[in-house]
């Protein structure tokens, strides 16, 4: 089962790679751009911590840890679930019919049937960062937290993409919800206060993507660890539920959106 899945995946990766080679210079630049984009952010925080040493209790090492987690979960989810951010488009343009015809889990197959080769740049970058800041002792915890954060990112993508079932043209909105959540997750959790912090740990799950994992790696707290795992299970169940609820609507042909 797993081997079969990986083989299918290798095929998708090959397709993505061949397409990329068609525009050779763009291909090279694009790979570099992925890394470059991450580097710019690191420089930003270097400048920041050079001036302040401490932002809301976080030091440079914590920030690098946050980036290691974010780039890894972002990268892994784009390599293995390349259609992550295209759910709205697929629903909206009626391409879902193709997946409905397959005798497989619809959501899973939608997600894996594309691979974004460029995500590999993020994965490599995340691994390098992790090497720099991570102690060997916390490796297993780190891996569990990366998986958790990948699952939350995926759930956010599924939830925002499922908007298309209910509102038709939701491509831009869905993408922006995803990117917005990601950008909220790119700052130290400790700077947020009060209601905002509460929101970031509930409605907008940005806190659990990066902030809570970093805090856990700084000093382990069993309560927060299980809370994180519980949250992953919860949001993933909600996301799956919403998707299939939408799918029901799609199948019964209630979609108001008409394509010409």
């Amino acid at each position: 089962m797993v081997v079969n899945h990986l083989r299918v995946h290798w095929e998708y990766l090959k397709v993505a790679l061949s397409t990329a080679m068609e525009y050779k210079i763009n291909f090279i630049i694009q790979v570099l751009a992925m890394v470059f984009n991450d580097v710019v952010w690191i420089i930003f925080w270097l400048i920041f911590f050079n001036r302040f040493q401490n932002v809301g209790g976080w030091v440079l090492g914590d920030m690098l840890m946050l980036y290691a987690i974010i780039t890894l979960s972002y990268g892994l989810s784009s390599v293995f679930f390349g259609n992550r951010n295209r759910i709205a488009e697929i629903v909206n343009q009626g391409k879902l019919d193709f997946y409905l015809a397959l005798p497989k889990n619809v959501l899973f197959h939608v997600l894996i049937s594309r691979s974004s080769f460029y995500g590999l740049g993020d994965v490599v970058f995340g691994i390098i960062l992790a090497f720099i800041v991570l102690s060997l002792a916390s490796l297993s915890l780190f891996l569990i937290l990366v998986l958790a954060s990948t699952s939350i990112l995926l759930s956010v993508a599924i939830l925002s993409g499922s908007l298309a079932f209910f509102f038709g043209n939701a491509e831009a909105t869905s993408r922006n919800i995803f990117m917005g959540t990601l950008s909220l997750a790119s700052y130290p959790l400790s700077v947020y206060q009060g209601v905002t912090k509460f929101i970031l740990l509930t409605i907008i799950p940005a806190g659990f993507i990066s902030g809570v994992p970093v805090e856990l790696l700084k000093s382990f707290n069993a309560q927060w660890f299980w809370l994180t795992i519980g949250f992953v299970v919860l949001i993933f169940s909600i996301a799956t539920f919403v998707f299939y609820r939408g799918l029901k609507k799609y199948e019964s042909g209630n979609l108001m959106y008409v394509r010409t």
């Binding site: 090959k14 790679l17 061949s18 080679m21 068609e22 050779k24 291909f27």
Partner: peptide, 10 residues
């Protein structure tokens, strides 16, 4: 066609 030729053409 094919991946290896794609890389070669690079």
């Amino acid at each position: 066609e094919g991946l290896s030729n794609a890389i070669k053409s690079l």
